[in-house]
Design a binder for these strands. Structure first.
Lengths: 201, 201
DNA sequence: CGACTCATGTAAGCTGTTACATGATTTA
DNA sequence: TAAATCATGTAACAGCTTACATGAGTCG
């Protein structure tokens, strides 16, 4: 149940229409919670029905006409409640790590190129975050709001740093691997239970 | 489309019944792709219908009776295809970062305790991973399979390290924050557009 | 007017979650 | 034989993704 609260946060920062929200989710908020316009329109409808937001007055037909929303007191209260409520962290769901694990069984053929591509993408994202940090969080500026926001940005920077470092290490490891681990199509898969995470405990 | 491939990987490592798979997903594989038994049974049914796996022969009724599966050649081929295929990384979806961002707007009241709890949980997970590393990846052991698996474990360790460090930093920051950022219930929310990630670009 | 873009929406399908149901096996 | 546990499932629902539909304004 995070999307409605992401929208409430965005609307508190600045009342917006559905499309404006969509664009903002492509940038700042979307860095930690992405959403498509279909999701956003549906959720806006629900939030309005629940009395958490309301459409700013505007005449004219409902189709094709911009419709901006603002947060009502009930919406702000709900957001504060949700923010303070305990929530367990969920285990990450990462297809790339899954693929790597699978490649230990079916062969690493082909995955290396994608690791390189991911490294490039994460490096770009890291650069973008660092640019934002330099621009928006220079010296001075340390209201409580700024510091909390800087903390969120730091998480983004540190996460991208982790990925670039890990992927670099992975590619180095691949360079040292015998050219093809694959080809073991019906190979000694019997004893692979002696090992690791990767394996059970 | 990752769950079926996670299951194929698990079954290649060791043919199993649904419940056995569920237990293995609670441990090793689940560290990067969790799944409940309902998901697993449904997916096993589909994989069997598609001819990717088959139930190992066993007489008797279908209910309440253990039913083990093994991967067929078509399943192995599909897994190899999926592993090698390019896939874009998806932006993380992290409720905690979302809540922190929301707390910059509605006040940090209450979230600090949960940050502490998360720090504790991540520290435990980190310790668990490091135990596995010490046990399963000591010196020696460097078959190609082992090295790939160690790489996956390293990702887990590095991720948990990131979280513990970031949460520690966040809590330190909170300690220095004025006791209550909250209370700005209808406060100067007008100019918060000058700032950050957190804000648009 | 025709094509294009902006803006809001509908519908279908898939994945993941929660709650419950049922048969088989063990144990007190 | 009653209760607990193991093992396999069913059903309903919520969230996310993809594809498509429709109206309104703009520009050639």
């Amino acid at each position: 149940m995070s999307l409605p609260h992401a929208i409430l946060t965005a609307l508190l920062e600045k009342p917006s229409s559905g499309l404006e929200l969509t664009r903002r989710f492509d940038r700042s908020i979307g860095y930690f919670w992405s959403a498509t316009h279909q999701q956003i329109y549906r959720e806006l409808g629900r939030l309005e029905a629940e009395g958490h937001i309301r459409a700013l007055p505007s005449e004219g037909p409902t189709r094709g006409q911009k419709k901006a929303y603002e947060v009502l007191p009930a919406g702000r209260a709900e957001l504060a409640r949700w923010t303070a409520a305990a929530q367990d962290p969920k285990p990450p769901r990462d297809p790339l790590l899954l693929r790597l694990r699978a490649s230990a069984v079916v062969g690493t053929e082909g995955i290396e190129a994608d690791l390189r591509r991911h490294l490039d993408l994460h490096a770009r994202q890291l650069a973008e975050y660092e640019e934002i940090e330099a621009r928006d969080f220079g010296p001075g500026r340390d209201s409580a709001q700024d510091r909390v926001r800087h903390l969120v940005l730091r998480a983004g920077i540190d996460l991208e740093t982790f990925w670039t470092q890990w992927l670099t290490r992975a590619l180095a490891e691949f360079g040292e691997l015998p050219p093809t681990v694959s080809g073991n199509h019906d190979a000694p898969s019997g004893d692979c239970d002696a090992t690791a995470v990767t394996q059970e405990s």
